[in-house]
Structure formats: C-alpha cells, structure tokens
Computed example of a mutant assay.
Amino acid sequence: MTTPPFPAPTTAELAVVSAQLGRTARGVVGIAARCECGNPTVVATTPRLPDGTPFPTFYYLTHPAATAAMSTLEATQVMPELSALLAEDDGVAAAYLAAHEAYLADRAQFGEVSEIDGISAGGMPSRVKCLHALAGHALAAGPGVNPIGDAALERSTWSPEKCRCDDPGAALRDVEASTA
C-alpha cells in the first residue's frame, strides 16, 4: 500500500466535516482538499463504511458553498453540455478514462470492495452523472486530472481560492480550541 497524499483527519477536522454535512461524518480517512481558509472541502472516505456498506465515492465534496454551486450547475442543465463534450472530444474521453483509473487506484489504497469493483464516481468513465463527485475528485487530484470535474469547477460560481465560509477558518479554529 502506498501512502496517501493526506494525513489522517484530526478530531477537529471531523467535527467541521460533520457540521458541514449536518450529520456525523463516516469513514473519513483524510482531508483531500481545503478551502483557502483551511476548512475541509473534500474528504477521502473508505470504500467500505464502518457499518459495512460499500461506498464508491472516495472523494466526497463537503464544503457547503461548493456543494451548492454544483447543485446549481446540475439544475441549470450543464450536465448535458458536459456529456456532449465527453461524447464529441476523444481527448476529453481519454482523459476522463484516465481520471477514472486514477480514482480507482487512489481508493484501492484503502481496500478492495468486490461490490464496487471497477465503479468510481460521478458516472466515470463513460457518462456525466454527479458533478459533486467529479468536482470533489478534481479538487483532490488537482487541475488536469479530471477534465469534466475541472470543467464543472470552471463553470461554477465557487472557487477554493476565494473563501466563502461564513467566517474564514473559524469553524476549524473553534473546534481545535475546544478540544485543546
């Protein structure tokens, strides 16, 4: 097993993620991307949750402003446009397939789950199904890895470079202070 590109989450980070989600975070193995202020944006999640449920979405978008931006894109019918791009551009299709394979390799570091073997997230490698998952992968992996995730982020009103947290960094600082 190779070492993941992120450390295990702290108790404070898990509390912030749980607050972002409005429920207890499950199976989080790391913070894969952060907002400009340091708050979690994307978590990495085990392929099998603690209750035994298979969970294919390794990179899970948690930041409320980012998830709202992806929901808005989905509601404004950007997915058919991105699906057409995937169908019409062989270069994009090849890069999307490579993104799918990279996603599976990242998740495999945390175990193989037969029920989700070969299944990544967001419709990869052949369709566009969930912009939340694709944007989460793009944020975690960095620009140029997931072309559809990158395109969704480019079309969105949200960016990790411009903090839109209610109070930048406050959530993580407050939790860290209360657990110190």
Results as ranks from 00 to 15, higher is better:
Pro5Ser: 13
Phe6Pro: 03
Pro7Arg: 05
Ala8Ile: 00
Pro9Ile: 12
Ala12Gln: 11
Glu13Pro: 11
Val16Glu: 00
Ala19Phe: 09
Gly22Trp: 14
Arg23Met: 14
Thr24Phe: 07
Thr24Glu: 15
Gly30Ile: 06
Ala32Asn: 01
Arg34Ile: 09
Cys35Ile: 05
Gly38Leu: 10
Thr45Asp: 01
Thr46Ser: 11
Thr46Ala: 15
Arg48Ser: 13
Gly52Glu: 08
Pro54Asn: 04
Pro54Thr: 12
Phe55Tyr: 15
Phe55Met: 01
Thr57Tyr: 03
Phe58Met: 10
Pro64Glu: 00
Ala65Gly: 04
Ala66Lys: 09
Met70Thr: 03
Ser71Ala: 14
Ser71Thr: 12
Leu73Phe: 07
Glu74Arg: 11
Glu74Tyr: 07
Thr76Phe: 04
Gln77His: 13
Met79Ala: 14
Glu81Arg: 15
Leu82Ala: 01
Gly91Leu: 01
Val92Lys: 05
Leu97Gln: 15
Glu101Asn: 13
Ala102Met: 10
Leu104Asp: 04
Asp117Thr: 13
Gly118Phe: 07
Gly123Tyr: 07
Gly123Asn: 06
Ser126Thr: 15
Ser126Leu: 07
Lys129Ile: 05
His132Arg: 00
Ala133Ile: 00
Ala133Lys: 00
Leu134Ser: 02
Gly136Glu: 06
His137Lys: 05
Ala141Thr: 04
Pro143Glu: 05
Val145Thr: 14
Pro147Glu: 05
Ile148Val: 14
Gly149Trp: 02
Leu153Cys: 06
Glu154Asp: 14
Glu154His: 11
Cys163Trp: 06
Arg164Asn: 01
Cys165Ile: 05
Pro168Lys: 00
Ala171Met: 15
Leu172Val: 04
Arg173Glu: 13
Val175Lys: 12
Glu176Thr: 15
Glu176Trp: 07
Ala177His: 11
Thr179Ile: 15
